[in-house]
């Protein structure tokens, strides 16, 4: 058993085109490290240099947004299903102002 991870189109260049990959870990953070070891570079698309979750993706554990589950500390276990989606956002506001509004 492992954690099943669904990867969006934009990140499939890291997974050799695979839509679903498997990983392991006890927290989302551990899972992402494990995934990055198999798919080099993936972590940088999910986690900021400061160590927080990227604004450009939404990550769900068993259909719950991880921002409500402790973010990178969200627990995961074998058999869980993790979904990564590109966050859909934008607007006329300048990027710096938008980032400030979002508290990032």
């Amino acid at each position: 058993m492992a954690v099943e991870v669904r990867v969006p189109t934009i990140l499939r260049s890291y997974t050799g085109g695979a839509k679903v990959v498997e990983g392991s870990g006890e927290t989302l953070s551990g899972l992402i490290d494990n995934l990055d070891a198999q798919h080099n570079g993936l972590k940088g698309r999910l986690i900021t240099p400061e160590g927080g979750l990227h604004r450009f993706v939404n990550i769900y554990v068993n259909d719950e947004d991880v921002r409500f589950l402790g973010a990178l500390e969200a627990p995961v276990k074998d058999g869980d299903s993790v979904t990564i989606l590109p966050a859909v956002a934008g607007g006329a506001l300048g990027f710096a102002a938008a980032a400030a509004l979002l508290g990032k």
Binding site: P8, T9, I10, R55, F56, V57, P86, A87, V88, A89, G90, G91, A92, L93, G94, F95, A98
Partner: peptide, 25 residues
């Protein structure tokens, strides 16, 4: 299609739109 409106500016992607654009298809 992914759409949104700009309500006071032209219908051209802002830098924010470009930064976030995550569906290349």
């Amino acid at each position: 299609v992914i759409y949104h409106s700009h309500t006071a500016t032209e219908a051209y992607p802002s830098r924010t739109d470009v930064k976030f654009a995550g569906e290349p298809g």
